[in-house]
Computed example of a mutant assay.
Amino acid sequence: MSNVTPLDNLVCAFVETALNKLHQLDSSAKQKRKALDGTIIGVALKEIDKPLYFVISQQQIDILGQYEGQADCFIRLNFLALIDLQDNHQLTNLIKSGQLEVNGDIKVVQQFALLLTEMDIDWEDHLSNKVGDLVAHKLVYHIKQLNKQFCKQHNKAQKQLTEIITEELKLAPGPLEVAHFCDQVSDIEKQIQALEQKFLEVKL
């Protein structure tokens, strides 16, 4: 029996339509879909825990609220981590911090993140056909400024959260503690190597 509600179907249809519309404007989307052709990726936000399944083909992306088979890769992440998926260098940090859980190949996650977040769209050109060059230029400029402010505030909030976790709540070690621990590990490794060398000398 299906657990998918009419609302789930509506969400899937909305996300699917919006994503494929964006890909029609993205000159690089077809090549990125080709790299994931035939791949099924499940995604669930931890705050909602309602998975969506992305069925990727060269032509388009289909989105399902339920999939009976085994997905090639399943991703579970926090809502705020969605922004950091734009930077593949952040994936390891997201996994270590527990904000991102991956069941499958991390390379597939990287390719999927690129497919969703890095779109080569000339918004000004597309908008100019609808509203004219001047209005299109102003709209794109203001959207870029808003995006910069949003990213700035996000980075600030993330930094404050890190400080609270490491400095006030003491739930994670601070940078100096990590550096000290690494030094201790390095010293132990050197001591072990020295003991191994002495053991070899005695054995000979």
Rank of each mutant, 00 (worst) to 15 (best):
H142F: 14
G38K: 05
V4K: 01
K34F: 04
I63Q: 02
H142S: 12
T162S: 08
L25C: 10
F112G: 02
L161A: 15
C151Y: 13
Q110H: 08
D133V: 07
A71S: 15
Q90L: 08
F181V: 03
P173F: 08
T162L: 03
S186G: 07
V43A: 02
K34Q: 10
L100D: 02
L77W: 01
F54Y: 13
L64W: 01
D133C: 02
N20D: 12
H154L: 10
K30A: 11
D62W: 01
D187T: 08
I83W: 02
M1V: 14
N78E: 14
Q160G: 00
Q70N: 10
D87Y: 15
Q99F: 07
E168W: 04
K198E: 15
V202E: 08
H180R: 05
K190G: 04
L134P: 00
S186K: 13
E177T: 08
V109M: 04
E163P: 01
N78M: 04
D37T: 01
N103V: 09
D125L: 15
E177Q: 15
E168L: 13
Q58N: 11
V43M: 06
E124G: 11
E196W: 05
D72G: 06
K34D: 08
K152W: 11
Y141Q: 14
L200D: 15
L195K: 10
D84F: 12
T166V: 06
L195A: 15
T39H: 08
D37R: 00
D84K: 08
T117Q: 02
G65R: 03
T117G: 00
K159V: 06
S97Y: 03
E118A: 10
Q197S: 14
E124H: 09
V4P: 01
N9V: 02
